[in-house]
Simulated assay, not measured.
Amino acid sequence: MKRFLFCLLIAALASIVCGCKHNAQGSESQDAQASATIAAGKQYPVKGKVISTDPTHGEVTLEAAAIPGFMEAMTMPYKLRTPNILTELHPGDQITGTLYVTDTNDVLDQIVITAQGQPDYKPPIQYHVLNPGDLVPDFRFLNQSGKHISIADFKGKALLLTFIYTRCPLPDFCPRMSQNFAKIDKALAADPALYAKTHLLTISFDPEYDTPAVLRSYGGAYTGEYSQERFIHWDFAAPSKKDQEAVDEFFDVGATPEKDRTITHSLSTVLIGPDGKVVHWYPTNDWTPEQVLADIKQVIS
Rank of each mutant, 00 (worst) to 15 (best):
K183Y: 03
D206K: 02
V279Y: 12
P124G: 13
T56G: 04
L267C: 01
A73N: 12
Q298V: 07
V270A: 02
R167E: 15
A14Y: 06
Y209N: 02
A190W: 05
C168M: 01
L215D: 11
L170C: 06
H265C: 07
I111T: 04
S266G: 15
K42S: 10
P212N: 15
A40F: 13
T37M: 07
F231N: 08
Y121G: 00
V136G: 02
K197G: 04
A190G: 15
T114N: 01
W281Q: 05
P169S: 14
S266L: 13
K147E: 13
Q94T: 07
L293E: 03
L86E: 10
A152T: 06
Q116W: 04
A65F: 00
E88I: 01
P132Q: 14
S227H: 13
V214L: 03
Q33E: 13
I184P: 05
F173C: 11
I184N: 08
V101H: 09
R216W: 13
A32E: 15
G273D: 03
E88K: 01
V299A: 09
E59R: 14
Y78G: 02
A34F: 12
P124D: 03
E28C: 07
A34I: 03
T256Q: 05
A66D: 13
C18H: 12
E208Y: 07
S52Y: 03
F4H: 02
A64T: 06
T166Y: 09
P212Y: 05
E208H: 10
K277L: 00
Y282P: 01
E290N: 14
L271M: 04
H57T: 13
G273T: 02
F205T: 11
D134T: 08
T256W: 05
C174E: 04
Y282V: 07
Y209C: 00
E258N: 10
I203V: 10
E249N: 09
P68K: 04
S268R: 10
N105T: 11
T56D: 02
L267R: 02
L13G: 00
V107M: 06
T262S: 13
T102A: 08
L188F: 05
M177I: 10
Q126P: 04
L170K: 03
G220M: 07
G19F: 00
P83T: 10
P91H: 01
P239Q: 15
A32S: 15
T98A: 08
K197H: 14
D103I: 10
I232D: 14
A158E: 00
H22T: 13
D295H: 14
R176E: 13
Y165H: 01
I263G: 02
Q116S: 15
T61E: 06
D153R: 12
P212G: 09
D295V: 05
K2L: 03
L5T: 14
P192C: 08
T264C: 02
G133E: 12
G48C: 02
E290H: 07
P283V: 15
A193P: 01
K297D: 00
H22W: 13
G219E: 07
A221F: 13
A24Q: 09
T198C: 03
Q94H: 04
D235N: 15
T104C: 04
T104H: 11
W281C: 06
D191Y: 06
T75Q: 13
H128L: 12
T104Y: 09
L62C: 12
L9H: 05
L170H: 14
